[in-house]
């Protein structure tokens, strides 16, 4: 589904991502863990086709994001860490805009908006301007907009921030549904307990370099993910 090969991106003299290689297969929920500034957002933005990168290759279902960006983008959705949406639109206008861009038919979008908005308890607020939404409501709207065209790959940067417990639980269910239907999820998080329970695979990144990746069992063994993460952080600091 997603192949990241030797991804490298520098900002001036600083390497934000350094020779990163990751493969994500259909049906996998892949967690991406690292300290602040480790390179998670840069990686996700590169995969989403927002950030131009210096070296390496990113392929989505065999297509390169560099040479076939539109085809790649049609198959995925991206939710950033801060849901800065079009505040001058109402929630429903925004969802219709996204559906238009992805060519979702009127009936399908109506059904999906109805379904997701009901699940996230956002229906009553859909006619309100996004400017009047709270952070959590914006996050819910961003999630609905990401799901509206049924993408095969969903990229999310800290998706649980701002969500109430009920919405967070619902999002976890929806993530699993996507993977059960053959899709894949690649998301970053600082909440290691969530990653441990939810992810099939996990990658730990530090200062732009991948320091460990694999299935949850391979990465953590008998320890908790938190213990492994802190241990790896200390080890690489000593080196």
């Amino acid at each position: 589904m997603l192949k990241i090969e030797h991804l490298t991106k520098s900002f001036g003299a600083k390497k934000a991502v350094d020779d990163l290689t990751l493969h994500i297969a259909p049906g996998e929920i892949y967690g991406f863990i690292g300290h602040n500034g480790a390179g998670k957002t840069t990686t996700l933005r590169s995969v989403a086709g927002i950030q131009q990168f210096d070296e390496g290759e990113i392929r989505i279902n065999g297509r390169s994001i560099r040479t076939e960006p539109l085809e790649c983008k049609r198959e995925m959705a991206y939710i950033p860490d801060n849901p800065d949406l079009y505040e001058y639109m109402s929630g429903i206008k925004f969802l219709n805009f996204i559906a238009d861009i992805f060519g979702v038919s009127p009936q399908e979008r109506k059904d999906r908006i109805h379904d997701y908005a009901e699940r996230f308890e956002l229906t009553a607020d859909l006619a309100q301007p996004i400017a009047a939404y709270s952070h959590g409501m914006k996050q819910k709207l961003a999630i609905i907009s990401a799901w509206i065209h049924r993408p095969k790959l969903i990229l999310m940067d800290e998706p649980f921030v701002g969500l109430d417990p009920k919405a967070a639980h619902l999002l976890k269910e929806m993530m699993r549904e996507v993977c059960d239907q053959g899709g894949a999820i690649f998301f970053s998080t600082h909440v290691l307990e969530v990653a441990e329970k939810l992810c099939d695979k996990v990658a730990i990144i530090k200062q732009g370099q991948l320091i460990r990746s694999g299935t949850m069992e391979e990465v953590k063994g008998d320890d908790s993910l938190e213990e492994v993460f802190l241990e790896l952080e200390e080890d690489s600091s000593e080196e």
Binding site: I92, P106, T123, A127
Partner: peptide, 16 residues
């Protein structure tokens, strides 16, 4: 503002 569910008209990406 109260939200009333209705079927939206589909637009091309350019028009959207």
């Amino acid at each position: 503002t109260v939200y009333h569910e209705k079927t939206a008209q589909q637009k091309t990406p350019g028009r959207a």
